[in-house]
Nucleic acid binder design. Structure first.
Lengths: 153, 153
DNA sequence: TTGATAATGGAAATCATTTTCAATAAGGAT
DNA sequence: ATCCTTATTGAAAATGATTTCCATTATCAA
């Protein structure tokens, strides 16, 4: 039975991967949060839903999801990878991140994205040509101190 | 004897840190390259210059340099931190990175930086206000495939 | 229902980085 | 120049995230 269910299941199928219980559980977890979860965060939630799921599988699954373009993977500088679902595969909804270097909280923002997008497109084109480099995507992170951490001290 | 030598030595001194042999060696290495070296890259070069230098010291020194604002630290997604000297502490010469996801090579670019800077300043201001967030710096990385890797296949 | 094999989980391995701790060396005071 | 305090060092062990190994299990096309 081919190409049934939600888009990410179709994508698994298209790539010849199976639609297994751990993959469904991990996908559910990703869909139910706005946070930027680490592999271990996800593992803890997954075990809660089905104790038989192993940490190894979580790592493997997240990597698989990353490879087939179902999640984005970020590194915010705390030594662990963090994952975010790509909710709509067609229009890559563009947002970037504010990272608090104190509490390590991450704020998504999508303001200024329009002007930004223009400049970024222009920059990408220019860079592609100048360096003969095929650009797939870019990331922008702002680092600083968040409201709460400012107030604390 | 205070505040002698190059700016980074002054900075060490201002922070009350000593100017030791390993620190000098590591600084020399950083000044002699345009590459984005990992701790181990630097360790290998350092041992070449003075076999008594230990890997631990390299990690510690790089972290120290980072803390006092002498180097920048980057993560390009290959699981190891990479370091770049801040050549002039006053005018933070702004450049960003093109990262080849195949060969992991990194190209610095400083084109488009002027327009980019304007937009980034504007964005920083807007975000700071909206989220009451003090922004210190930002990073922009472009990911893609470099010229050489395209030609290979 | 079955059979080939993709996927799994647990344990052990790996890799970058950090911690511990006793020995050493930088640099202000003498 | 020498002494003395203590920051700094190097080696080994510890840590933490992620990966590999491998025997068992589960998915899905036939």
């Amino acid at each position: 039975m081919r190409n049934r269910g939600p888009w990410w299941q179709k994508r698994l199928d298209d790539f010849g991967f199976r639609s297994t219980m751990p993959r469904k559980v991990i996908m559910d977890i990703l869909r139910q949060t706005m946070d930027h979860l680490s592999a271990e965060d996800i593992y803890l939630k997954a075990v809660n839903m089905n104790p038989s799921i192993g940490l190894t599988t979580v790592y493997r699954t997240l990597d698989l999801f990353y490879q087939i373009g179902v999640v984005q993977r970020f590194d915010f500088g705390d030594g662990k990878a963090r994952y975010e679902l790509i909710s709509n595969p067609n229009k890559k909804e563009h947002h970037h991140h504010l990272v608090c270097v104190k509490c390590r909280n991450i704020i998504d923002y999508s303001d200024f994205v329009h002007e930004e997008q223009e400049l970024m497109d222009k920059t990408e084109q220019g860079l592609s040509q100048k360096h003969d480099f095929d650009i797939f995507h870019h990331i922008i992170h702002f680092y600083g101190i968040c409201k709460e951490c400012k107030e604390i001290e």
